[in-house]
Design a protein around this nucleic acid. Sequence first.
DNA 1: GTCTATAGACGGATAGAC
DNA 2: GTCTATCCGTCTATAGAC
Lengths: 211, 211
Amino acid sequence: MTKQTDDAGQGQIRQSNERVILAAAEAMFARAGFSGTTMAAIAQASELPKANLHYYFGSKEAIYRAVLARILNDWLAPADAIHSEADPRTAIEQYIRAKMALSKQRPDASKVFANELLHGAPLVKELLATELRKLVKAKVAVLQAWMDQGRMAQVDATHLFFTIWAATQTYADFDVQVSAVLGHNNLSAKAHARSTEHVVSLILRGCGLSQ
Amino acid sequence: MTKQTDDAGQGQIRQSNERVILAAAEAMFARAGFSGTTMAAIAQASELPKANLHYYFGSKEAIYRAVLARILNDWLAPADAIHSEADPRTAIEQYIRAKMALSKQRPDASKVFANELLHGAPLVKELLATELRKLVKAKVAVLQAWMDQGRMAQVDATHLFFTIWAATQTYADFDVQVSAVLGHNNLSAKAHARSTEHVVSLILRGCGLSQ
DNA sequence: GTCTATAGACGGATAGAC
DNA sequence: GTCTATCCGTCTATAGAC
């Protein structure tokens, strides 16, 4: 009762509160960026007093770091679809669909990450140059092997990743622009399905994997 | 001498100073966004006293508006390449090359615009829903006619624009990520040329306009 | 028309009561 | 462990000297 050295007791409350704070922070950072987001705004969205954010995380930057860390994990996962035993067409199609699903399900996460990149990636630059670079190198080798075997068209595999990232994330990051041009107020599930089919078919044909 | 009602006299100085301020502001807004940019920073970059910025523009938001306005004009111009008398392949290739050139030549403009969209486009939302939507509609009609004539593959023409914008602007907006993955410190002219050839060939093949 | 000096508001962080 | 009240630095904007 008096002892609470392990994470069992109030650790539950801490864990729950941290989760609430990070979710609120992600939404606020997506909407206004790092400088445009105030601790008061995160506190209000979390329905917690401002001082508690400092109690749990210490500083605004620490909250931002925590939000980014949570995002990065999820961001790299879809690349699993691309492995040497897979069929080229299926692998790339799965990868694109997974990225499009992320755009639909976690638009705020995408925006926070985009914002970080846009402003020079001060916090994740190192990770990009190490982990992401390593991951892309490995996947590029897989794609290159498929090209050498004549199983898909010759494209620059590294740049193909840049194009897939850009084409899929634009539906999360720049949704206002997409909605405005389409004449909608926001992107419906139907509109998103249409976007997905477009990106899949354009890229697959671009890779010589259909027609 | 005493009369200065026209723009001839000190109007020269005003025009020159406004130009300097807007150029400096574009660079700062690209680096740090609206909230992250201080008037002091713009003043230092302009080599003008802080109060002069207020003298010329009135407020920080007015400077931001002026920067955005300058960008929007240049942004829509490349679409001229797409008109009904043109050859489909030439038109789309020209359009992509023009957008890639903009990414190379005006990366800061691209970043300011991307940042505005990312945060919900409070200032340009209306323009997107009117001018941009109208422009895209017109160009989509041209592309659709080409498809109906069997001169290119059936793709969703509106979404094709989204993909081209995303694929080309990613080299300006997310240059840190591209550089990190490629293992460079920044994007050389050679790397940019390679990027351009990639985007051109991928999209053209995706549109059934090569091989 | 230009610039210094300052007002006034806001935001991040913390002290200290509970 | 939680929260109120407050400090202190920073930022936008402007008043007023030159």
